[in-house]
C-alpha cells in the first residue's frame, strides 16, 4: 500500500519539479506568481494590506482596469492595439456628464456613455479594417481626438454627478465584493465564454494568428477587426460609468495611467502582442496585480511618484518572461 502510494507521489512530483526548472512554466504563470509574491510581501510588511476593508477597496479599484484590460485583450488577440481606451473612457464620461447636466434620466445618460464608446470604437475599427491603416496610428489619432473632444464638449469643466443609484453602485455590494467588482467579474466571465466558446472568439484568434489563413477559409477579418474595437470602445464606455460612480463627477481630465495599465495587464497576463494567443484569466490577474502593487506601495508610504516607475519595471519584466513562452 505505502509503496504504491510513494511511487504514485514520486510520479507526480518528478515532472512537477522538472516543470519548476522550466522557464516556460514561469512565463505562463508570471502574473499569478507575481500576484502571490506581492500579496505575501505586502501582507507581511503591513497587516492592513490583507484586511477585508483593504481587499474590498482593491477589488473595486481593480474593476475599471479589469474591464478596460478585457477590451484590450480582444484587440491584442487580433494583433492590434487600442491606444485610445483611456481617452474613450474620458470622452464617454463627459458625454455622461453633459447629458446628466441636461437633465436626461440616469438610464439614458448611462446608455449615452456606452454608445459614445461604441461609436468611437466602431470608427477606430472601420478606419483600421477598411482604410488599411496601422492600428497603432489610428488609435493614437483616436486618443488625441477623444481627449480633445472631451475638453471641447465639457468646455474643460467637470460636472458633479450626485445620484443615489450611482452612490449605491460604488459603495454597495455583496459581502466583500463591491458592485463594480461584481460587474467586472461578470464582464470577464462573458468575455471568456465569447473568446473560447463562440465562433466569433475562434475567428478573433485566427485573425491574430494568421489573417491570411483566416481570410482563405472565408473569415472576414475586416469584420472581426471592427468588432474587437467596438468591444473595446463599448467596455471603455462601461468603465466611464464606474469611474463616475467612484469619483462622483464627470471630468474631462485624461486618464493616461489607465492606458498604460490596460496594456500592462494584458502583457502581464501572458497574452502575445503578436496576436493569436490570448486568455481572459491572465489579463484579469494582471489587472489585480497592478492594483495590488499601487495599493501596497501607497500603504507602505512610498511616494506616488514611484508608482509608475514600479509599474514600468514590472511590465518590462513580464514582457521579457513572455519570450520564454512555449
Amino acid at each position: 500500500m505505502t509503496t504504491t502510494a510513494t511511487v504514485a507521489a514520486k510520479r507526480d512530483t518528478e515532472p512537477f519539479s522538472h516543470r519548476l526548472k522550466d522557464v516556460g512554466f514561469w512565463a505562463e504563470w508570471a502574473a499569478l506568481v507575481g500576484l502571490v509574491l506581492l500579496v505575501i510581501v505586502f501582507g507581511i510588511a503591513d497587516p492592513t494590506f490583507l484586511s477585508s476593508g483593504n481587499i474590498q477597496s482593491m477589488l473595486v479599484a481593480a474593476a475599471i482596469l479589469t474591464i478596460l484590460a478585457v477590451g484590450q485583450t480582444f484587440v491584442i488577440a487580433t494583433g492590434g492595439i487600442d491606444l485610445s481606451v483611456a481617452s474613450i473612457m474620458t470622452f464617454a464620461a463627459v458625454v455622461f456628464g453633459q447629458t446628466f447636466a441636461a437633465g436626461w434620466p440616469l438610464a439614458a445618460c448611462m446608455l449615452a456613455a456606452v454608445v459614445a464608446g461604441l461609436l468611437i470604437g466602431a470608427i477606430n475599427g472601420a478606419v483600421i479594417a477598411k482604410g488599411k491603416i496601422t492600428d497603432f496610428i489610428v488609435t493614437l489619432g483616436a486618443l488625441s481626438f477623444a481627449s480633445g473632444a472631451a475638453l471641447v464638449l465639457s468646455d474643460g469643466k467637470p460636472v458633479t454627478v450626485i445620484n443615489a443609484f450611482l452612490l449605491r453602485l460604488s459603495a454597495g455590494g455583496v459581502g466583500i465584493l463591491g458592485w463594480s467588482a461584481i460587474i467586472a467579474a461578470v464582464v470577464a466571465v462573458i468575455a471568456h465564454v465569447v473568446l473560447f466558446r463562440t465562433r466569433f472568439g475562434t475567428h478573433v484568434l485566427a485573425t491574430g494568428g494568421s489573417s491570411e489563413a483566416a481570410t482563405a477559409t472565408g473569415i472576414s477579418t475586416a469584420r472581426v477587426k471592427i468588432a474587437v474595437y467596438v468591444i473595446s470602445g463599448t467596455l471603455a464606455g462601461l468603465g466611464a460609468i464606474l469611474l463616475i460612480a467612484r469619483v462622483g463627477a464627470a471630468e474631462p481630465a485624461s486618464n493616461t495611467s489607465f492606458l498604460l495599465n490596460s496594456v500592462a495587464a494584458v502583457v502581464l497576463g501572458g497574452v502575445s502582442l503578436m496576436g493569436g494567443r490570448a486568455t481572459i484569466t491572465g489579463p484579469v490577474i494582471g489587472a489585480l496585480l497592478l492594483t495590488a502593487l499601487t495599493n501596497g506601495l501607497t500603504l507602505l508610504g512610498v511616494s506616488q511618484f514611484y508608482q509608475p516607475v514600479a509599474v514600468g519595471i514590472v511590465v518590462v519584466l513580464a514582457a521579457f518572461l513572455t519570450r520564454f513562452q512555449r
Partner: peptide, 26 residues
C-alpha cells in the same frame, strides 16, 4: 476547397480548430 501554397493553417490554433475553421459546429 483550396490548399494554398503557404498552407493557410493558423499555427496557434489546434488541429481540430483548423479543420473546422469557419465551419464550426455549434
Amino acid at each position: 476547397e483550396t490548399v494554398h501554397q503557404n498552407l493557410a493553417l493558423v499555427e496557434d490554433l489546434t488541429v481540430w480548430q483548423n479543420l473546422f475553421l469557419n465551419r464550426e459546429l455549434v
